[in-house]
């Protein structure tokens, strides 16, 4: 039986928790949405349909999507190699996959500029031989996003791969199925939810990425300026409505993605009767 004292404690804990979340999460959201609409929906649209804003949004969506596709394929292969094979240096390789979670994104950007920049070893070589400019161009943004997104798919697929029986694959193979057929019919259906959720999480993360992109991209409007860097520029030039409008669009896109993943994995885990691990950060 609860005593009066413990009921008081329990109530104050609840009030503390709710107040904390409302102050930290709900209030900022409300402030942003109300500011973006403070001059009406018309000015919101006018801001978002300006060529510079549109281009920044388009570039963000394209680079994040390309990263997501590459990341889905390479992440699945990496997870497969890390769970199914044993080889020299495997645990080192596994630690390397987690590095992007640990390294500050600004440092990521700096590293990429050192290597692929105009003074970098690889950067000069690529420029001379292939006439390919990596840094201060959309390619650099893609590279930064690939680095930042690397762990998401690997870490979400790995635990599922662990649970899929190797026997199933071997049975399929001995029955004469080609490797590709085995993957498509046996492995892929089991991995699909994990691949999708890892990919979408990395996509949501990539939409808002700032630290690495601001160093690598060169931030040329209409060419290599992403949405988050656009917002930064509008804050600096005190163009509040433009900054708010783009912020709302960016936030809605990435939060919707995260909520979808949340709903999707919860649904699937209920079906399977287990909780799949979802990579965080």
């Amino acid at each position: 039986m609860k005593t009066g004292k413990s009921r008081l404690l329990s109530r104050s804990l609840r009030i503390t928790a709710i107040t904390y979340l409302v102050v930290m999460l709900v209030l900022p959201l409300l402030a942003l949405f109300s500011d973006s609409l403070s001059e009406g929906i018309v000015s919101f649209w006018k801001n978002m349909s300006q060529p510079v804003a549109l281009h920044a949004l388009k570039l963000t969506l394209i680079t994040a999507s390309v990263m997501a596709v590459v990341n889905a394929i390479m992440g699945t292969i990496t997870a497969y190699v890390l769970t199914r094979y044993s080889f020299f240096g495997k645990s080192l390789l596994s630690s390397l996959v987690d590095i992007p979670f640990a390294i500050p994104t600004l440092v990521t950007g700096v590293m990429l500029v050192i290597l692929y920049g105009p003074n970098g070893v690889v950067g000069t070589w690529l420029k001379e031989v292939f006439n390919l400019q990596v840094v201060f161009a959309p390619t650099g943004i893609l590279l930064a996003l690939l680095f930042v997104g690397l762990p998401y798919v690997v870490r979400s697929v790995q635990p599922v791969l662990h649970e899929v029986d190797v026997d199933q694959e071997e049975a399929a193979s001995t029955m004469g199925a080609s490797t590709w057929l085995t993957f498509r019919r046996v492995l892929f259906p089991a991995l699909r939810p994990a691949i999708l959720s890892g990919t979408l999480l990395s996509f949501a993360r990539a939409l808002g990425e700032f630290g690495s992109v601001v160093v690598v991209a060169g931030n040329i409007p209409m060419y290599s300026q992403t949405a988050s860097v656009y917002i930064m520029g509008e804050i600096e030039s005190q163009n509040q409505v433009a900054a708010s409008s783009m912020s709302v669009v960016l936030l809605t896109l990435s939060f919707a993605t995260i909520l979808f993943v949340d709903w999707y994995t919860r649904d699937k885990s209920l079906e399977a009767g287990e909780v799949p691990e979802v990579a965080e950060v």
């Binding site: 900022p28 500011d35 939060f255 995260i258 949340d262 950060v281």
Partner: peptide, 23 residues
Amino acid sequence: LNGLIDLPFAVSPVVVGYVLFLL
């Protein structure tokens, strides 16, 4: 509220700073 807890994972850091600026 539980869904909102993941919000910081989704928001661009620039937007976080900007919202504090607004507040």
